[in-house]
């Protein structure tokens, strides 16, 4: 085990002083960068999501219990103003360290699971052959597994999480076009693809205990013709990911 502490070697020359300054600057950069801020959360479109609205309602209720009542609009506007001002101050404070964050990899971004997403969405991808739609991918489901090793790799899970939010619609569109190209390679007979998100409210422990199924609806439905092109060398003659199971369009 550890021995009693021994005194540090006496500091001599300019290096110990300089090192102390540099390490202090590092510590300041790290602490300032890590101060809580709503980066990435300042989106009016995202704020309309029921998960966010439920969260606002919960906090408005808590404040009302403390005697500070306000309308949903006033609460949201107050939060927006506070968040915007905080971001402006943060931006100014971090500016001197911008290059240190960028080139030394010392960015501090620790907004992990700040709130549970009570209205998540799962991606479904369908292909159409001879006028019949069949499902080729269902996020998180063991069955249809088209490109599952790619689409459910942890890096792409992050993208899928984002693309079920309205403020990422442009990138979702780009992903949809990629799907249309790749499905044409793996299912040469398919003439169209469809992407859709099943958005639902997660079951409470009581409802899950009663064996209920989550209720929801499909949103952000995109139907595109498959895109024929030159197959890449690495995918010249792929077999279909799985034998398609015909499915009646819901």
């Amino acid at each position: 085990m550890t021995a009693p502490p021994s005194p540090a070697r006496p500091a001599r020359g300019p290096w110990p002083q300089l090192r102390a300054v540099l390490v202090l600057l590092h510590v300041i950069a790290v602490v300032l960068g890590a101060l809580p801020a709503p980066s990435g959360g300042m989106s009016r479109a995202a704020w309309r999501d029921p998960t966010v609205q439920d969260e606002f309602d919960a906090w408005r209720g808590k404040l009302a219990a403390l005697g500070w009542s306000m309308s949903p609009e006033a609460f949201e506007e107050g939060l927006w103003t506070l968040g915007s001002e905080l971001m402006a101050v943060r931006s100014r404070a971090l500016r001197p360290f911008k290059h240190y964050y960028r080139y030394a990899g010392t960015t501090q971004s620790w907004r992990m699971f700040v709130a549970p997403h009570r209205y998540p969405a799962r991606l479904f991808i369908d292909a159409r052959e001879d006028g019949v739609w069949f499902n080729i991918f269902e996020e998180g489901a063991p069955g249809p597994d088209w490109r599952q090793s790619q689409l459910e790799q942890d890096r792409f899970r992050s993208a899928l999480f984002r693309y079920s939010w309205p403020n990422y619609s442009r990138s979702y569109g780009q992903f949809s076009r990629w799907v249309a190209k790749e499905v044409a390679i793996d299912y040469p007979e398919a003439d169209a693809v469809r992407l859709r998100w099943f958005k639902y409210k997660t079951l409470s422990p009581e409802d899950a205990g009663r064996g209920l199924e989550p209720e929801g609806e499909f949103i952000y439905i995109k139907t595109l013709p498959t895109v024929r092109g030159e197959p890449r060398a690495s995918q010249a003659a792929p077999a279909p990911a799985a034998a398609p199971t015909p499915q009646v369009q819901p």
Binding site: A58, A115, P116, R118, P205
Partner: peptide, 29 residues
């Protein structure tokens, strides 16, 4: 500390229903 201070959901903080982890575990992503 930073991630803890940013867990501001009413379901994370003491005084709330402390349901955050249960519902996070239900997120399909």
């Amino acid at each position: 500390a930073s991630t803890g201070l940013q867990k501001v959901s009413a379901s994370w903080v003491p005084g709330g229903d402390l349901s955050a982890l249960y519902y996070i575990l239900q997120q399909p992503t």
